[in-house]
Amino acid sequence: MAVQGDVNTAAKTIVLGLATGFGAIGPGIGVGIIFGKTIEAVGRQPELRGQLTGMMWLGFALTEAIVFYALGMAFVAYAIT
């Protein structure tokens, strides 16, 4: 397969993917911890399930948003360089 297009765009695209991918590692672990701990907590005290799920979704969203900061910054880096 012949390589076409300029190297600059290729490098920027690779960086965009890498930045987002690395940025997704931490939140991935964090989301796993949040769900795991909530399951643990519900296992210990099933009567608190309602309150715990509310807090779980809040924590989930706060953690998940970090991926989007990485994605946003990657887009910014892509656009300005």
């Binding site: 969203a61 998940e64 948003a65 989007f68 900061y69 994605l71 946003g72």
Partner: peptide, 13 residues
């Protein structure tokens, strides 16, 4: 930033 980016990027992504 966080409140607006969360909604915006979630839907965009």
């Amino acid at each position: 930033v966080s409140l607006s980016f969360r909604l915006f990027f979630n839907m965009l992504a």
